[in-house]
C-alpha cells in the first residue's frame, strides 16, 4: 500500500502525463549511459575482474571481519539510540519544566551539545574523560559521544512535537486529575512521537551512520574493519570491499526505516493520530481501482 505522493501540483492530465513519460525515458537513458560508461572504465582498469570480487569467497576471514564490524556497529548504534532517546526525553522534560533552574540547565545543555560536532564529543569522551579520571573503553567513548549529541537533537524533536499538540488535549487530561508527568507520558508524548516519527527516524539513521566516526578512536566498527581489510589485502580490493560495506549500511538503514514504517502502520491501525486515514483510504482505493 502506498500513500498519495506529496507533490506540489495538481494531478497531471493527459498532456502532462505524456510529458512526464518522455522526461522519464530521457532521464533513464542518460542514467543508463552514465552507468555503462562507469562500468566500462572500471572494466578497462580490471576492477570488475571476477578474481577481485571472489575475495569474499576465497577469504572466510574477510567475511568474519566484516560481519564482526557490522555487529560492532549495530551494538554501538542500538546502545546509543536507547540512551539518546532517554536523554532526549529528560532534556525535553527539563526544558518544559515549571522550575526555572531546570529549564535553564536543560536549555544550556541542549544548545551546547547541539552546536558541537559529534566527532568532537566522541574525542572528548575518549580523551577528555580519562583526563578527568574516568576510564572509558572505545565502545563507551563512541556511545557517550553519540548519546550526548543525538540526545540534544532528539529533545528538540520531542519538544517541537509536544508543542504542536492542541492545548485542549493537555487541558482535558489535567481536568481529569492527571499530574503533569502523567499528562506528558500518556497524552503528549504518544501524540508527539507519532507526529514527529519521520524526523525521529531520520535522526536515528544519522546516529547509525555516525557510528563510523568510531573509526578515529579505533573502535572496530564496520568502516574500520573494512578499511583494515583493504590495507591487509591490498588497495586493489578497495572497490569490492567498500561496495559491500556500503550495501551493508544501506540494507541496515533500509531495515531500520522499514521497521519504523511497520511500527507506525501497526500503531495507526490500532490508534492513529495526525495523519488522516481518509488520505490513506483514498490512496488504497485508488490503488485498488
Amino acid at each position: 500500500m502506498s500513500a498519495t505522493p506529496l507533490v506540489l501540483a495538481d494531478p497531471p492530465g493527459p498532456r502532462g502525463r505524456r510529458r512526464i513519460l518522455y522526461g522519464s525515458l530521457v532521464a533513464l537513458a542518460v542514467f543508463a549511459g552514465l552507468l555503462a560508461l562507469a562500468l566500462t572504465r572500471l572494466a578497462d582498469k580490471g576492477q570488475l575482474d571476477g578474481e577481485l570480487w571472489r575475495v569474499f569467497l576465497d577469504q572466510p576471514e574477510l567475511r568474519t571481519l566484516l560481519w564482526k564490524g557490522l555487529l560492532a556497529t549495530l551494538r554501538a548504534a542500538a546502545t546509543g539510540m536507547v540512551l539518546a532517546v532517554a536523554l532526549g526525553l529528560l532534556l525535553a522534560l527539563g526544558r518544559m519544566s515549571k522550575r526555572r533552574v531546570l529549564r535553564w540547565a536543560a536549555t544550556t545543555a541542549v544548545e551546547l551539545l547541539r552546536s558541537l560536532p559529534v566527532l568532537m564529543l566522541i574525542l572528548f569522551a575518549y580523551l577528555g574523560l580519562p583526563a578527568l579520571g574516568w576510564q572509558v573503553s572505545t565502545f563507551w567513548a563512541l556511545v557517550i559521544g553519540l548519546t550526548a549529541y543525538n540526545g540534544a537533537v532528539l529533545s528538540e524533536i520531542f519538544r517541537a512535537g509536544v508543542r504542536s499538540i492542541d492545548r485542549g488535549q493537555t487541558e482535558a487530561a489535567a481536568a481529569l486529575g492527571l499530574r503533569p508527568l502523567q499528562v506528558f507520558r500518556l497524552v503528549q508524548l504518544p501524540q508527539a512521537v507519532r507526529r514527529m516519527s519521520p524526523t525521529l527516524i531520520s535522526q536515528l539513521v544519522t546516529l547509525l551512520k555516525d557510528t563510523s566516526l568510531g573509526f578515529v578512536i579505533a573502535y572496530s566498527e564496520l568502516l574500520r574493519s573494512g578499511r583494515g581489510a583493504v590495507e591487509f589485502l591490498g588497495s586493489r580490493y578497495a572497490l569490492p570491499i567498500y561496495t559491500v560495506m556500503a550495501l551493508m549500511y544501506i540494507v541496515t538503514n533500509g531495515l531500520l526505516s522499514l521497521l519504523a514504517r511497520w511500527l507506525d502502520q501497526r500503531q495507526s491501525r490500532r490508534l492513529g493520530t495526525g495523519r488522516s486515514t481518509v488520505a490513506l483510504d483514498a490512496a488504497a482505493g485508488s490503488a485498488a481501482g
Binding site: D166, G168, E171, A172, A173, A175, G177, P190
Partner: peptide, 16 residues
C-alpha cells in the same frame, strides 16, 4: 480536579 468533570467546546477527546 478528579472530582470535577469538564466538558469543552471543542470536545478535546484524546486523539490517539
Amino acid at each position: 480536579r478528579a472530582r470535577v468533570g469538564m466538558v469543552f467546546q471543542s470536545f478535546n477527546l484524546f486523539a490517539h
